[in-house]
């Protein structure tokens, strides 16, 4: 080790202190922290604004009646009843029908784009798919009401589709709406599978179908699960399409009753929160209670999906 000696002959040590206080760096860091904190704050505010009227609501209606009651007749009259089950079932029916359409179609499109389509075709189809995902949901609702409904009435003459609204048609419309989402997310997951894995399978004499199903699919499973859960969240939260095409009759029916009209949680909130309800009334509080329940439902679903994705990762990575 060499020691530096300055002109005066003192033995000096090198200075390792910062040459400037670097305020800019600290400022940027503080700014980024505020931005990140803001989104957390806003989310918290939303939850609180949902919870306060909800708590208020439960001082007037018991939780048991709300969660397990089978009659949904909110409002002023004398026959009021706040059993939320019919509109929860309506939401679940629409979601189920939508997923039955969106998951197979979306995953098969993803397989096609990722494994079968030539690169030139993929370059065209993928952006088109992403544009489709951006069609306003109001337009999809109108498409369901004025095109899909008469189309299915002709296609399935044995199904009773006399009414204007149908949970089947609305569910299929929501499903078609989220196909691009499923296809796009799943395709990204499949493309991310290392090409070496595919080569290994092809080198063993596997056909394209075998490579897709037995190698690409399991390797991309966590992304595919994520795509399905994302699709379910979109379907549960979808408002406009069901508001237009599913009707407004809160009924406890199975998803197989194609031509029946149902009321979903989102559609109830959408048609009730129109601006002419007085704040503080029971109806006003009801929409917040339903909103809070919707929030809890999607929260549970997201938690399940996080666990699922993690479990598959553990197996495969």
């Amino acid at each position: 080790m060499t020691t530096r000696v300055n002109e005066a002959g003192d033995v000096s040590r090198p200075s390792l202190k910062a040459s400037s206080p670097r305020y800019g760096e600290k400022l940027i860091k503080a700014f980024l922290f505020v931005c990140a904190g803001l989104s957390v704050l806003v989310t918290t505010a939303i939850v609180i604004s949902l919870l306060v009227p909800t708590v208020d609501f439960f001082t007037e209606v018991s939780i048991t009646e709300f969660l397990f009651g089978t009659e949904w007749r909110p409002g002023r009259g004398t026959q009021t009843s706040y059993g939320v089950l019919p509109i929860v079932v309506g939401t679940l029916n629409i979601t189920l029908i939508a997923l039955v359409v969106a998951i197979p179609v979306g995953l098969l499109s993803a397989f096609y784009l990722s494994e079968y389509a030539n690169p030139r075709l993929r370059k065209i189809v993928k952006p088109v798919l992403e544009v489709l995902a951006g069609i306003p949901t109001v337009a999809i609702g109108l498409f369901a009401l004025y095109f899909l409904k008469p189309f299915f009435a002709d296609l399935l003459p044995w199904v009773d589709l006399d009414g204007l609204f149908s949970q089947g048609v609305a569910g299929i419309a929501v499903g078609l709406m989220i196909v691009p989402l499923v296809a796009s997310v799943a395709e990204d997951a499949m493309r991310a599978v290392p090409p070496g894995l595919r080569e290994g399978a092809y080198a063993l004499g596997a056909t394209k179908l075998r490579v897709s199903l037995k190698v690409v699919f399991p390797a991309a499973i966590s992304g595919i699960v994520a795509a399905c859960v994302l699709a379910a969240s979109r379907a549960i939260g979808e408002t406009m399409v069901v508001l237009i095409a599913a009707g407004a009759s809160p009924k406890l029916i199975g998803p197989w009753e194609f031509g029946e009209s149902v009321l979903t949680m989102t559609a109830y909130i959408g048609r009730t929160a129109t601006g002419d309800i007085a704040t503080g009334t029971i109806t006003y509080k009801t929409i917040f209670a339903v909103g809070a329940l919707l929030f809890v439902m999607t929260l549970i679903m997201n938690l399940i999906s996080i666990r699922l994705v993690r479990r598959f990762r553990e197996v495969y990575e």
Partner: peptide, 12 residues
Amino acid sequence: GMVFQKPNPFPS
């Protein structure tokens, strides 16, 4: 058959 540069076991 073929063996590759980077080991490429299947995710299974």
